[in-house]
Design a binder for these strands. Structure first.
Length: 549
RNA sequence: GCACUCGUAGCUCAAUUGGAUAGAGCGUUGGCCUCCGAAGCCAAAGGUUUCGGGUUCAAGUCCCGACGAGUGUACCA
């Protein structure tokens, strides 16, 4: 419908001998401005040499509103052309919601583009802490949106079980192990302080007694044990949030397969790497950086940059044509290095989308919750889930745009009341479910959505609140698409809140269960549509939508 | 110091990516249940979008500067 209108407008521009311009529509925020608006007249005013309202008038004169099922076309403000849909056409289009059901909202905008989304990627040195929650949830929502828009998505977790951090982990566990055995053994300055290290050590004592007191310098057993323990914890936490990665990519495999040295060689060949002060440097300044970067330390070990670059190249080699990375703001420094490296190796950085999310602070009502890493009792993501529930975690972490700092109010999140935005949405769904149950109890035969679409007399739908709701529901596919293409899942939560609001208004004004069987069926169909959209939206986010609450 | 991100109602945040009268929730004030779920609805109050310039038909949004906040600025990841 939009496309038909666009094509007619394009023709009109040609007939009027106006320059051809891209015709875009927007959805006015003010209700009085109709359902769609275009600014073409304003774009053309200058080249045509007329004032925008005159240009608009000349276009409108040539348009037949009834051909596009428009009840109104008017020129307003500085030169906008506003279109209002005929109510019957809205109702007509809304049938699609019933027909497509759980698939309503899915599109093919991504055209099967092979996409890699990498996120979480925490090294297995401890359980995920509450701050990780934002990353976990954001990545899940982004991946899900990309799937809904027809991308071929691989969900990936990148980790390193070989570096310094793992050495520290092994050392920390060993120290706690010795302490458990009653030995006076010091915990190193840089050791992991968390209580979970003591738990791990205790487990080891229980299983092995003191047989491991003498161990190799690498603390191999402790390292391995710790890695497995931590990874198990991490994966359990992810599972609770409905996150399942397709690939766990081990940084170590890049060394084993020679991909690291390959990058160094290639850099040298292109004069992008050189030796100095016993280290190997990358000429980052060639790409606008303030100084060159070390990629291999004096000790012979690469810095984190080198494997990161090699890893991204491998993603390209594996055939991905869209690479999405999700990083916290604390890792922002790595991004230019990776992008520069990728570019140096001849790949397009525009195919790498880096989503950076700002940090999270936690409050409990008025009280600021301190989450210092030094604190032995870290507030883990599991603790947070236990406290506020899965749905609140999924919703709260994604309801703000990634670019702004997020304040997570624990007291609000666990409050089971109208103050809590998750409940507002879930309540709407449960309310609809309740109405549908009620209808069945009052003797209305339960009809599935397809039957409703086929047998309902939709001409009975036409009240303002009904049309407003249906129009809002019909926005769902384009909302999903636009959230996906802009990588901004928070806008989905905004939209879903509006849907719920629109439903509640409809509900308040119109009785669904009533004496007129045909009218009742029509309104039950509207309810089913609203339920479908809310459910589909919640599915994208992973939030549950209960039939009762 | 430098780089990146941000600055919108008392608080937490939106704003269709440059569009018309800047909107929600919480909080405050006042209405609405003999009726399908009041975890709901309606209404009121609350703003020089941190400040100052610029770009254009149009700026919260883009550019420059100032101020303020966060995060980085390693041969840690």
């Amino acid at each position: 419908m939009k496309d038909a209108l666009r094509s007619r407008l394009t023709d009109i521009l040609r007939e009027l001998h106006y320059p051809s311009v891209d015709i875009s529509f927007e959805r006015p925020k003010v209700e009085a401005h109709g359902d769609l608006t275009t600014n073409v007249a304003m774009m053309l005013a200058k080249p045509v040499g007329k004032n925008p309202r005159q240009v608009a008038q000349s276009i409108v004169d040539k348009l037949d509103p009834s051909a596009f099922r428009l009840s109104k076309v008017e020129i307003a403000g500085p030169g906008f052309i506003n279109f209002t849909f005929d109510g019957a056409s809205v109702v007509e289009r809304a049938k699609e919601i019933l027909v497509r059901g759980a698939a309503f909202g899915r599109t093919e905008a991504g055209k099967g583009r092979k996409t890699n989304v990498e996120w979480v990627s925490a090294n297995p040195t401890g359980p995920l802490h509450s701050g990780h929650g934002r990353q976990v949830v954001l990545g899940k929502a982004v991946a899900s949106l990309l799937e809904w828009t027809g991308h071929d998505v691989t969900k990936e977790y990148y980790f390193n079980n070989a570096g310094n951090q793992m050495r520290t982990l092994g050392e920390s566990i060993y120290a706690r192990y010795r302490q458990q055995l009653g030995d006076d053994y010091p915990l190193a300055e840089n050791a992991y302080q968390g209580e979970y290290i003591v738990d791990i050590a205790r487990e080891i004592v229980q299983a092995n007694g003191e047989t491991l007191r003498e161990t190799d310098d690498e603390r191999s057993f402790f390292r391995k044990y710790g890695e497995e323990w931590c990874f198990k914890r991490i994966k359990e936490t992810l599972t609770r949030l409905g996150v399942r990665h397709d690939v766990f990519y081990n940084e170590d495999s890049l060394y084993a397969s020679g991909k690291i040295t390959e990058v160094i060689d290639e850099f040298r060949k292109r004069d992008l790497a050189y030796d100095s002060e016993g280290a190997v440097w990358f000429r980052a300044t060639r790409f606008g950086a303030d100084k060159d970067r070390v990629i291999v330390k004096g000790t012979g070990e690469p810095t984190y940059r080198l494997p990161d670059i090699a890893y991204h190249r491998e993603k390209f080699r594996r055939g991905f044509d869209l690479i999405v990375d999700i990083f916290g703001a604390d890792h922002i420094a790595t991004i230019p290095d990776v992008l520069n490296g990728v570019q140096a190796l001849g790949y397009e950085t525009k195919d790498v989308k880096v989503i950076i999310h700002q940090m999270v602070s936690f409050v409990n009502g008025d009280e600021v919750v301190k989450m210092s890493k030094r604190n032995a009792n870290v507030y883990t993501l599991d603790d947070l889930i236990n406290e506020v529930g899965v749905d609140a975690v999924l919703y709260f972490f994604v309801m703000r745009s990634a670019g702004t700092h997020l304040e997570f109010d624990i007291a609000l999140a666990k409050e089971q009341s109208d103050k809590n935005p998750v409940y507002y949405l879930q309540y709407a769904h449960a309310r609809i479910a309740s109405i549908l149950r009620h209808a069945v109890q009052s003797g209305v035969p339960a009809a599935d959505a397809a039957a409703l679409a086929a047998t309902t007399d939709f001409s009975l739908i036409g009240a303002k609140e009904e049309l407003d709701l249906l129009k809002k529901l019909l926005e769902f596919p384009e909302t999903v698409e636009s959230c996906a293409l802009s990588f901004e899942p928070h806008r989905l939560t905004t939209y879903l809140r509006e849907v719920a609001e629109s439903f509640h208004r409809f509900y308040h004004e119109h009785r669904v269960i009533n004496d007129d069987p045909k009218l009742m069926q029509a309104r039950l169909a509207v309810c089913t549509m609203a339920k479908t959209v809310i459910a589909n939206g919640c599915t994208i986010l992973g939030v549950s939508c209960p039939e009762k609450m």
